[in-house]
Simulated scan of single mutants.
Amino acid sequence: MASTSPGVPGTPCWVSLTTQDMRAAQDFYGAVFGWEFEPDVQAEGYVVAHADGEPVAGLVESTQTMGVRLPVAWTAYFGADSADAAAGRVRERGGTVAVGPLAFGRGRMAWAADPLDAAFCIWEGPAAPGWLAGRGTGAVAWLELHTRDPFASALFYGGVFEWDAHPDVIDVRYEHDRVMLRAGGRTVAGLYGGVPESAEAAIRPQWHVHFCRDDVDEAAARAGAAHGTVVAPPQNTPLGRTATIRDPEGGLFHLSSIEDDPS
């Protein structure tokens, strides 16, 4: 993970794509976003994507690690003062820790899942400077958890990442059908309900990544031309122009112009 400065514990600090074909993934996301890629010299096999010279995301090939093969997906990282302590709180609150905590690059990390099996990553270490602080084209705009009970999920994540311990920078807003997480005066994540309770449902609880684009229609067209799937075509929403895409391996992500703060 490319990172050089302290982040705010408990808040989103990075995203990474687990892929089965690193070269194909770079070709696809390079075509859609214009990203450039560099190996992370501190983490073997890890590649960092840059937009306008700034690190915005990571890519790692799915391998058999500690008996677990990670699926192709975008994963949200949350900062923690101690990955080991946060992993312990995950287990105490009914979640699971699939991999780690272990040393990775300049810090320590763990792959985990909440009680409804939405995957996320715990990161202890420096955070990418300015990551999620602005909305430059090709950078992450914000994150969404689609789940069954956003209020129960907020209690889980709030407990794991100790949101109450940082009232000066973290603001959790409970609304009638969602929970909004604000840090540094702007919305960085939202927790939404609506996912069916059936274990056989095609839609499972999952963290979704929104990437900034000021050319959502053109980017969606580039994704289709690069053999991705446009799951939801570009449309106008209260947040601006948005579209939902799956890459050729099935990794789900969103394009968003984000004209206003999601809160």
Rank of each mutant, 00 (worst) to 15 (best):
M1Y: 10
S3N: 08
T4K: 10
S5R: 12
G7H: 00
T11A: 13
T11C: 11
W14A: 00
W14H: 05
S16H: 11
L17A: 13
D21R: 09
R23G: 10
A31V: 01
E36F: 02
F37S: 08
P39K: 01
V41F: 00
A43K: 11
V48A: 14
A51C: 06
G53C: 02
P55V: 06
S62I: 03
T65R: 13
M66L: 14
V68Y: 15
R69H: 12
L70N: 07
P71G: 10
W74Q: 02
A76P: 01
F78H: 12
G79K: 01
G79P: 04
D81H: 05
D84H: 01
D84K: 00
A86F: 00
G88V: 05
V90K: 08
E92L: 13
E92H: 12
R93E: 08
G94Y: 05
G95C: 10
V99A: 03
V99G: 01
G100D: 07
L102Q: 15
L102R: 12
G107K: 02
M109V: 07
D114F: 03
P115C: 06
C121M: 15
C121Y: 04
C121L: 13
A128W: 02
L132D: 04
R135N: 14
R135F: 05
G138F: 06
L145R: 03
T147L: 07
R148G: 04
R148C: 07
D149P: 07
P150T: 06
A152I: 02
A154R: 05
L155K: 13
L155W: 04
F156V: 07
G158I: 08
H166S: 15
P167F: 09
D168N: 14
D168P: 14
I170N: 07
V172C: 12
V172I: 11
Y174D: 11
H176F: 02
R178K: 14
L181P: 03
G185H: 04
V188D: 02
V188T: 06
G190V: 14
L191E: 00
Y192Q: 10
G193V: 07
G194Q: 10
P196Q: 11
E200D: 15
P205M: 05
W207M: 01
H208S: 09
H208N: 10
D217T: 14
A220N: 13
A220F: 07
A223C: 08
A223L: 08
G224I: 02
A225K: 07
A225F: 06
A226Q: 04
H227T: 11
G228N: 03
T229V: 13
T229R: 14
Q235K: 15
N236K: 13
T242Y: 05
T242G: 06
T244F: 03
P248W: 09
E249A: 13
E249H: 12
G251R: 03
L252K: 04
H254K: 12
H254P: 05
D260I: 15
P262M: 09
